[in-house]
Design a protein around this nucleic acid. Sequence first.
DNA 1: CGAAACCTTGACAGAGTTCAATAGGTGTGG
DNA 2: CCACACCTATTGAACTCTGTCAAGGTTTCG
Lengths: 208, 208
Amino acid sequence: MSFVQPSLSSDGTKRTFSERQEFMTEDMPASMHFHVVAGGARLFKSLPDGRRQIIGFAHKGDVLPAYPCTRYHYSAEAMRTLQVVCVPAPYMSHLHETSPGACAASLNSARQLLVSLHSRLLMLGRQTARERLATFLLGQGTRMGSSELWPVDPAISRADMADFLGLTTETVSRLLSAFHRERLISRERRAIHILDPDRLRAIVAHSE
Amino acid sequence: MSFVQPSLSSDGTKRTFSERQEFMTEDMPASMHFHVVAGGARLFKSLPDGRRQIIGFAHKGDVLPAYPCTRYHYSAEAMRTLQVVCVPAPYMSHLHETSPGACAASLNSARQLLVSLHSRLLMLGRQTARERLATFLLGQGTRMGSSELWPVDPAISRADMADFLGLTTETVSRLLSAFHRERLISRERRAIHILDPDRLRAIVAHSE
DNA sequence: CGAAACCTTGACAGAGTTCAATAGGTGTGG
DNA sequence: CCACACCTATTGAACTCTGTCAAGGTTTCG
């Protein structure tokens, strides 16, 4: 999730959470915005029976805003040691009301999020498991716009991928094995490297 | 989609589109925001092979913003005779930069959209066909927050529901028949009325 | 009234899930 | 440093929900 916003780190209180700690839950009053300074977090919604959908991942620089609701509407959990700066919601609102620049920046990042969520609706609603996984791998690999291909963050487990893609861990595992067999990716340890981005892109677009 | 914003109707050019007219496509330069004055539209993304995912529906008062991209990233089609006011993107930007109120209003509606999209990710990724349809019917029935139950807009076809819910028309049809048999809804002509919202809610939440 | 579009229903197929067993990796304590 | 336990990942086999294909039925509208 890229909800990047400039320099909030100077205000607010800094807090640190340990791996797996759920620092934001759906039933918690939404009083703070969290600005991620270091580490990573998974953001998710869950159903009462435990089914989980990962909304996105937050990395350094992202802001998890308290939306204009009384409670948060999703949960967030540290994927590894996580440092955030907590900004009180009223402070943010004040900033938005007085500084058009700050507000425009927030609006801009909210809209970029909307664009990516629209694509994910299409993915979850209409793409096959194979297409979804290929999309995910490419998204991870080309994250932050650099042309270089990054490996998938090893902190992202099969369960995370499954919950992100609306699949089961078994399906993800089987598809990764298939991709490996087809020499599209390599797997060493838990790290996944993209070997053939072009053919992955073909899988995504081969929805002709 | 509730992207409500106050009084833009006074500026910009008014335009009218006829039923089924696609007035905004994914490959069109994003130069205008459309403010819906009357009628309704379906907003969707599609894959090259024709698979379609409906992002949402736009009604009177909603604004379809040109996101900060060079092209629109979804298409929009009139569901019936549609009147919109076109606001040039640069004009909107200018407004946002100078009036904190206008920007805050846009931010607020963008964030409300984000909240609803997060729920739809959970729906498309993790809910069964039955749960999705129940959610959809309740969403239609209780739209605009009034406690009264509205019938589903007859302009929404089975294909629309299917493309909104990530299903096929056949599945939607079968489930509607099942709901009818269970006396959860009534069907007269093309109109669908909710008879038993409580049991529909139970279907949605019975994900225990 | 008749044609076209839309909707419903059935029979069958298949992608992905579920259940279950095995393998691999990681960390801890002796 | 090995052994054990635990957690995660992989693989297989059976099943099931939803999709696909096909045939009628219904509504709408010229």
